[in-house]
């Protein structure tokens, strides 16, 4: 969306965490195009379906290219863009339902490839756009419109999942801490590999967790979110494992693989540096 588009009538609810993510993404993108001198038109935002997916229409300022695709399929679309055009900076924006439920099957292959895209997952632990059903990150027992007697399965721990699947760069953030988030998104864009910034982005309508995340001294609510210890070493797998095994929401760069070759680099080193035959030469191979 360039300027105001009166026809486009989608709105995030007041207080939606996605506003903060948008601001952080705009700032990170701005800094990225200035620092890298990669022009805005060489940036592509791939969005999933759900409230978070509307990010691609709601960005203000200079407009990157965008795809608003299918539910769950952000990653393979991003893979197609990045593998055909390694010169483009590809950023994925998706929600927890899109990314961790219907789209779960696509995380592992990108992790193994070390696909060089930056992923921002907006996690509100609920399906907002379809009005409040349970999601993979909804906690066990949670009452939602699709779990009227309480959710029967455990919540997935996305950070632990990413580490297990071999994601190279894993960060965790809050949507309300825009400055920190913006830096994390920028770092993930710059990281030459598969980078996920998992953001707690509460839904004020169906699962308002601002208070639980930040805590409330007056009500005696302990904050779920906590900062990483000073001595945390993100290049250490065991440090990272230790962090994601603890309860609550850790904030910061949890893991970053060092010297792991990105997918674009692997392709470049394996097949795109080869001398391909011309169509004529290939056809001539079949001459009788």
């Amino acid at each position: 969306m360039t300027d105001k588009n009166p026809e486009y009538d989608f709105k995030w609810c007041p207080g939606c965490g996605d506003f903060g993510v948008r601001r952080a993404l705009e700032q990170a993108l701005q800094k990225y195009i200035i620092d890298t001198e990669i022009p805005i038109e060489n940036n592509v935002i791939v969005a999933g379906i759900g409230c978070s997916g509307n990010m691609v229409h709601l960005l203000e300022g200079q407009q990157p290219f965008g795809i608003h695709g299918l539910h769950g399929r952000t990653l393979p679309i991003a893979m197609g863009i990045k593998s055909s055009r390694p010169d483009l900076n590809v950023t994925v924006v998706a929600g927890d339902g899109d990314f961790l439920s219907i789209g779960m099957e696509h995380i592992a292959p990108q992790a193994q490839r070390n696909l060089d895209v930056c992923v921002i997952v907006m996690d509100n632990a609920v399906y907002g756009l379809t009005k409040g059903q349970s999601s993979p990150t909804s906690h066990e027992g949670m009452i939602t419109s699709s779990t009227p007697y309480g959710k029967m399965e455990d919540a997935v721990n996305p950070l632990k999942l990413y580490l297990t699947l071999g994601v190279s760069h894993v960060a965790s953030a809050l949507s309300s801490k825009i400055k920190d988030l913006s830096q994390m998104i920028y770092d993930a864009m710059k990281y030459p590999g598969f980078a996920i910034v998992h953001v707690q982005s509460p839904c004020t309508e169906y699962n308002n967790t601002y208070e639980q995340l930040k805590g409330n001294v007056k009500k005696g609510i302990q904050p779920m979110a906590w900062s990483l210890p000073e001595d945390h070493n993100p290049e250490s797998v065991s440090d990272a494992q230790n962090i994601v095994d603890r309860d609550g929401i850790p904030l910061g760069l949890i893991y970053q693989a060092k010297d792991r070759t990105s997918f674009s680099k692997r392709v470049e080193e394996t097949t795109s540096s080869m001398n391909g035959k011309s169509a004529e030469d290939i056809i001539t191979l079949y001459s009788v």
Binding site: I67, R73, I77, A78, G80, S84, R85, P109
Partner: peptide, 15 residues
């Protein structure tokens, strides 16, 4: 599913 959606990305990106 990965095949068709990656093709969408590639076709979109001009190839």
């Amino acid at each position: 599913i990965e095949a068709i959606t990656s093709l969408i990305g590639a076709g979109y990106a001009g190839t």
